[in-house]
Write a protein that binds this DNA or RNA. Sequence first.
DNA 1: CATGAATGAGAGTTCATTCAT
DNA 2: GATGAATGAACTCTCATTCAT
Lengths: 204, 204, 204, 204
Amino acid sequence: MGISERKERDKQEMRKKIIDAAMHMFTHDGYEEASIRKIAEKIEYSPATIYLYYKDKDQLLYDVQAECFSKLVEVFKKEATSEDPLKRLEEICFSYVRFGLTYPEIYDLMFIMRSPMNNMEDKDIWKNADDAFGCLAGSIKECMDKGLIRFNDLWLASLSIWAMGHGLVSLNISCRMKVLNMDDCQIQDSIYVSVKNYLELLRK
Amino acid sequence: MGISERKERDKQEMRKKIIDAAMHMFTHDGYEEASIRKIAEKIEYSPATIYLYYKDKDQLLYDVQAECFSKLVEVFKKEATSEDPLKRLEEICFSYVRFGLTYPEIYDLMFIMRSPMNNMEDKDIWKNADDAFGCLAGSIKECMDKGLIRFNDLWLASLSIWAMGHGLVSLNISCRMKVLNMDDCQIQDSIYVSVKNYLELLRK
Amino acid sequence: MGISERKERDKQEMRKKIIDAAMHMFTHDGYEEASIRKIAEKIEYSPATIYLYYKDKDQLLYDVQAECFSKLVEVFKKEATSEDPLKRLEEICFSYVRFGLTYPEIYDLMFIMRSPMNNMEDKDIWKNADDAFGCLAGSIKECMDKGLIRFNDLWLASLSIWAMGHGLVSLNISCRMKVLNMDDCQIQDSIYVSVKNYLELLRK
Amino acid sequence: MGISERKERDKQEMRKKIIDAAMHMFTHDGYEEASIRKIAEKIEYSPATIYLYYKDKDQLLYDVQAECFSKLVEVFKKEATSEDPLKRLEEICFSYVRFGLTYPEIYDLMFIMRSPMNNMEDKDIWKNADDAFGCLAGSIKECMDKGLIRFNDLWLASLSIWAMGHGLVSLNISCRMKVLNMDDCQIQDSIYVSVKNYLELLRK
DNA sequence: CATGAATGAGAGTTCATTCAT
DNA sequence: GATGAATGAACTCTCATTCAT
């Protein structure tokens, strides 16, 4: 029995290697550079080898995405530590936004790109975001339980707060904030201020 | 004199034709299908002909995007007509969201895709969104002038409200709302409710 | 009768305009940039207009080439003025080489490119080079008549001297002198020295 | 160990196949016909396959050129065998010229075309011609060492002799000898005679 | 387990040229 | 006389993927 376990472990290690390479390329060269061939080249395997571990590119991206999400959760764990629920919610939101602005290409894969979501069947469940979303929702729930914010519905609250954060980050990533005619500094400021404002509005 | 005018008109008509075809393909087949070749095929011209009217693909997409934005403005004009500023702001927001949910591929080009923003120089100005953004900002300004909403800074207000709307629409388009485990109906509802909630929060 | 003459004159003027534009593009942007469309653009006419004056690109290039050759003759006239036949021959050779090194793209069209020669029928006569070649041959003839150089056959002499000059210039233009591992300065020197050496060898 | 060797051999064989096809097309249809597509077609592979063996067209042409040069060296080895240094130099020169006149398209790639030299960085070294040039220079050196020809500087000598040969061949290839109004036979004769004359001039 | 070899499909783009007006 | 409009035919190159070995 040890054998099959080891094999599985080996397989996981290889997958990890692939994903790490892919993430590195995403982060540093942009998602356009992350072709199967280039990923394979980076880990010094042949493209065909990738297909031993992943059915197709979408499945690979799905796993890369998972890795990205666990990175985000780490960030949450590290940066959102306050006891005060409201404070912690703010920390989470700021962490989220900072993460997005710091790693735009990865953020793209996590929250913007169609791949690998658009080739999932509707029935397929998307587990990658669960933990990270759980962090947010958990923090919000605490606020609600203690009557600190103006929301009755946890899902609605989570969705709204997420949407605000994502809206700001993604408009920036896709350069649509050009319409505001601000320089980069002002834009960054406005993003954080917008988040802060919103959370203050929510406070009872 | 009529001649050069007619020529210009002809040229514009051809451009219109190209753009319409492109928009149609965007809308129905997704932006991945909208290659120069396929657009040309659709209007039954040769690919080279496209290049008589557009320097390159980005310029074409830029114009398609412009067309999309003027469509959005039309929608605003038609659907946001209330005298009551707060009401009108709500109408604009709902129109925006509905537009995004109805034409996701077009919305993609307008607010999500990197092209054609990607290849603009930083110094280039992005005019396409000005009018539509002006509608939103104008409406918000009226609310602010009359002391109806809790905002001091017009740009911050506009950005926040836009970000909320965009966040909701784009999370949905990119299927990230799967994390909520809701069916499509519930999601749609949540989106509209989120917008409504936010606007109510803003009301003084 | 004045009318048809004027027409012909007009036609010639237009041709001149086209050729000048083409030469300018050759000289400054390289022959790869000298497409019919770009030439037309430069003189602010439509590509189709070019075809009113030239049957095809080869015919146009043929005329451009003619212009280049008359430029070369001018240079000869200006720079090769010594009374001493041997001296004048040397001046001609140096002028030729300097011309080639100074205007490599034009030299290419005159002496290297297949177009417009390769689409000439064998029976067609190539007049463009006659005058320039005449300068060289004339000068050589004088040397021969006065018994100054070791050649009996004028054509053989002309060919040899031309070949030496052309060989040096064209090997340089096509970067083949890289094989010598010299820097640009040394190469230029070597070219002129080679010419000089050869002429000295020829002197009786 | 045999395996990796065989693989490498296979790869080389494929490269050979590609190059041979390219050379064949050069020789028979002219260099204009030698597009990646057509080469691929000729060897009955897909264009993409070419890119498994060559990074881009220039690299392919570079290798084709190398092959041409080794063909030339073979010719030298076979045809220039005299013990007498002067005689051998003459044989080399005649071989060179004959090669150029027999395979004009290949000669073009070796000594005239800008590609693949064009896209070499200045610092890149051009090794293709080294051996062939070495044959010429070696033979000249022997003549110089034995005091048989009127040259002090080996490089200058080599350049001059090469330039004479190249000038004659390339003027013929590019049809510029039309200016002499000779028929093909006379031209060929003149070329050989010119070479011979020059070598005799050089003899001490 | 790993891969070398191969490919079909497609991308954006440019060219010389034609012809009805 | 001039041209606007159009095009067929090319071009180089990249991609995700497959399969025999």
